[in-house]
Design a protein around this nucleic acid. Structure first.
Length: 504
DNA sequence: AATGAACGCAACCGCCGCTTC
DNA sequence: CGAAGCGGCGGTTGCGTTCAT
């Protein structure tokens, strides 16, 4: 209903051009006194206006931007621009090996839930992750490499064999199963590279670790999950969805003053990891001189001379002008985290809880998710895939408070996966999650990971190999694997292959 | 050097859910 | 309670750049 209307409005708003002052590109202006909203790449001037506006009024109320700032962009466009390019502390540049690992792992559990995944990758946007994954998927597909590392790929199968249906918090609801839109070939896509792991071994220590031991893992998870992608782990009591929105602009609410400039995320980081804080040079909203930061960002964008879109640098680290980010300096900190041994990194995937129940139970077909589960499902070509419809709907995007628990932990080792599993997940990930949970209970590798473990020491904790890897994971019968995961055959030397692929 | 394919990325589109009136 | 508005999310598209032939 209004949806249509709204959309129409959006369409109208997003149509065309703008107002005068933006005419520097020749596409701004008004027609018949009606402001025509501009579309297409943003110019530095527009970025500056938007940044200035947000600095003054805070985030949110995006539709007001056009009204109050003279920026002829629809609210959505402004929000997107801000979120993806202009907001402070965006991490630009190529994904690190750790991030790639994390993404793969997250994807194996979440499917194409980019925003959620972004919540685990501070400084990264859902769009960025989405693009990355799609690109990798395509690349791997072309190269005939598995999308997921074998450890991850194995998981579902093994677990599926043992215990599906177990924990069934939502057995019937399992499935977020957003399938990759393609065929099982996609199963082979993967994004990992253990070689890189060797180098970077780290697991992205993005986890939000509460200093306060009293905080339960669940609460932590919940809180962090509520956080928007770039506001991870914002401690908040806000419930659910509301919380989400609030968290995005925690400081804004009060007034839209300059204080709002910085994201809570940083604060969180602050108590999460000193390193992180330092590396980011987080500015608190109370920063007496927020302007300094702002200036930096602003200049950065302007320095571009052009909108971000105009300038791909194509190097390892890309400094997107519009982004206002300083990847090298600001985020070098990521690399500073303690790096787990290679094995650890690898094993992390062993832990990854993969959706197996769905496979076994066939309760739903992971049609749209793209998750490993879905892929497996697809590859197996379940005859009863029709069951999905119902399941599918159930998973749809309704995020429950519970599922919010998903986000939060950024470190790879985490139990976080466990949490994913045992909590209702919006996309029916529950299935996956549940499965995993079940696995844990079964005494598999993961169960060893307890929230306490993760959060102990208030910092990212890397799981020792023994904790991480499940006995089964390594010992899995290959025959089964071969059957279930044909790509395994392809990926025996997946790492090497993928590395080559990356390098090419 | 020219050309086409692949890549990478930004932006748009449409739908959905939540909030407000 | 329903309509309208708003913001968020995931999918898709368009385009500039890079790479291979």
């Amino acid at each position: 209903m209004n949806q249509v209307k709204t959309e129409n409005e959006d369409d109208m708003q997003c149509n065309d051009q703008t107002r005068s002052q933006l005419n520097d590109e020749g596409n701004g202006g008004s027609v018949g006194g009606v402001v025509v909203l501009k579309k297409g790449p943003w110019t530095s001037a527009e970025d500056a206006i938007l940044v200035d506006y947000v600095r003054k009024h805070g985030e949110g109320n995006w539709n007001a931007v056009q009204k109050n700032s003279g920026l002829s962009r629809c609210g959505k466009s402004c929000r997107l621009r801000w979120a993806n390019h202009l907001r402070p502390n965006l991490k630009k540049g190529s994904f690190t090996a750790d991030e790639e690992q994390l993404i793969a792992k997250l994807h194996s559990k979440m499917g194409n839930k980019w925003a959620r995944m972004a919540a685990h990758l501070p400084g990264r946007t859902d769009n960025e992750i989405k693009n990355y994954w799609n690109t990798r998927t395509k690349r791997c597909q072309r190269a005939g490499l598995p999308v997921y590392p074998k450890e991850v790929r194995k998981r579902p199968f093994q677990e599926g064999q043992r215990g599906q249906g177990t924990g069934g918090i939502n057995d019937g609801d399992r499935g977020h199963h957003d399938f990759l839109p393609k065929n099982n070939y996609e199963m082979h896509d993967a994004i990992f590279d253990n070689l890189n792991l060797k180098q970077n071994q780290g697991i992205l220590p993005i986890a939000i670790v509460p200093e306060n031991p009293d905080i339960s893992a669940n609460s932590i998870l919940l809180n962090s999950f509520d956080s928007p992608p770039y506001c991870n782990s914002v401690p908040s009591a806000l419930p659910n969805h509301h919380h989400l929105r609030e968290s995005t602009m925690p400081f804004l609410g009060s007034s839209g003053t300059n204080k709002n400039w910085f994201y809570p995320y940083y604060h969180v980081q602050d108590h999460t990891s000193d390193k992180i804080v330092q590396s980011f040079e987080l500015h608190s909203p109370l920063d007496p001189s927020p302007s300094s930061h702002y200036s930096m960002c602003y200049l950065h964008s302007l320095s571009n001379g052009n909108s971000s879109t105009s300038k791909p640098t194509s190097k390892a680290v890309k400094l997107e002008l519009p982004s206002l980010q300083y990847p090298e300096t600001g985020f070098g900190g990521w690399g500073t985290f303690p790096q787990p041994p290679l094995n650890e990194s690898v094993d992390v995937f062993n832990q990854s809880p993969l959706p197996h129940a769905a496979l076994e139970s066939g309760c739903s077909s992971p049609h749209n998710s793209g998750t490993l589960e879905a892929l497996v499902y697809q590859s197996k070509t379940f005859p009863n895939s029709k069951n999905n419809s119902s399941d599918k709907s159930s998973h749809s995007s309704t995020a429950t408070p519970v599922d919010r628990a998903e986000s939060s932990v950024l470190n790879m080792n985490e139990t976080e996966w466990e949490d994913y599993t045992d909590r209702a997940s919006p996309f029916g990930a529950t299935s996956i999650l549940n499965e995993c949970h079940a696995v844990n209970t079964n005494g598999n590798s993961w169960d060893k990971l307890t929230p306490a473990q993760n959060f102990n020491g208030n910092n990212v904790k890397y799981e020792p190999v023994d904790q991480v890897s499940t006995p089964n994971s390594e010992n899995q019968p290959m025959s089964l694997l071969n059957i279930t995961w044909p790509d395994v055959l392809l990926a025996s030397d997946w790492n090497d292959q993928f590395m080559d692929l990356r390098r090419t």
